Amino acid sequence: MKYIDLIIFDLDGTLVDSRDDIANAVNFTLKKIGLKEKSISEISSYIGTGIEDLIGKSLGNKQEVLLTRALSVFEKYYRKHSTDNSVLYPNVKEILEYFKNKRKVIVTNRNYGFALIALNKLGIYDYFEHVVGGDDIGCMKPSSCPLDRSMNRLNTNKEEAIIVGDMDIDIVAGKKAGIITCGVTYGIGKKEDIIKAKPDFIIDDIIDLKDIIH
């Protein structure tokens, strides 16, 4: 076990299963602008690198012409429906309560406002010192920038910080920041991508953080 002062959590695919709501918002957008809807699995493969990238990939070869309009439609719809079907993954509330005396932050590529909506609606906002969103500071994972900003803000030693996420970009960002990395296999990201990223730890259930952190 490792002494950890700061736990940096990803949001979508790590704490929150948001696939259905994101897919519904994307498909509403595509239908609204006259394009064919896509499967949840295809849309899920576009999640993780910010809303603009999500919508751009969903538009395909129509991206350049329709991106601005599509983003507007998506954001308006998603603001109202972002937590219709979203739920916490098993044992998320339990692990946050278990580590209630540890400092914890969210670093997500989801827009800050949408992150706050999810955290509040799902009842876990108060567990975190602060939230860094994908539109906050001009940089996103896999850059280490949002992690570095969080650690500097809280005056945390890199040796005492860990990032927990479901995608390879979380692990890459953590490695660039020089902190401990933990990949989860139950989320939106592909398990094989997590394995290839070579995190320090891989867990199948978030409750297993109890065996890693003290």
Results as ranks from 00 to 15, higher is better:
L67K: 14
D208P: 00
G123V: 06
V107H: 10
N85W: 01
L96E: 01
K62F: 15
L6E: 05
A118H: 09
V105Y: 09
N27P: 10
S86H: 04
T185L: 14
F28W: 11
L66Q: 02
G165D: 03
T181Q: 11
G165F: 04
I43Y: 06
F128D: 07
L15H: 06
R153F: 12
K100H: 12
L209A: 03
I188F: 14
D135Q: 04
E159N: 14
K121G: 04
N101F: 07
Y46N: 07
T14E: 09
V172A: 00
A118S: 15
V105A: 11
L209M: 11
G123Y: 03
I212P: 04
G138P: 03
I124K: 06
F74C: 12
K38W: 00
H81Q: 09
V131W: 07
D17Q: 04
Y46K: 06
K158S: 14
T156E: 08
R110D: 01
V164L: 02
A23V: 13
E159P: 00
G56K: 05
G56D: 03
I33A: 11
N101H: 11
G34F: 07
K76S: 15
V131I: 15
V92Q: 09
N85R: 14
D84F: 07
L35I: 08
M1Y: 04
G165N: 03
T83P: 00
N24K: 14
G13A: 05
L122K: 05
V105F: 09
N109V: 11
E37V: 12
N157R: 07
S41N: 12
E94I: 02
R110N: 10
C139I: 00
K31R: 13
L96Q: 01
K121A: 15
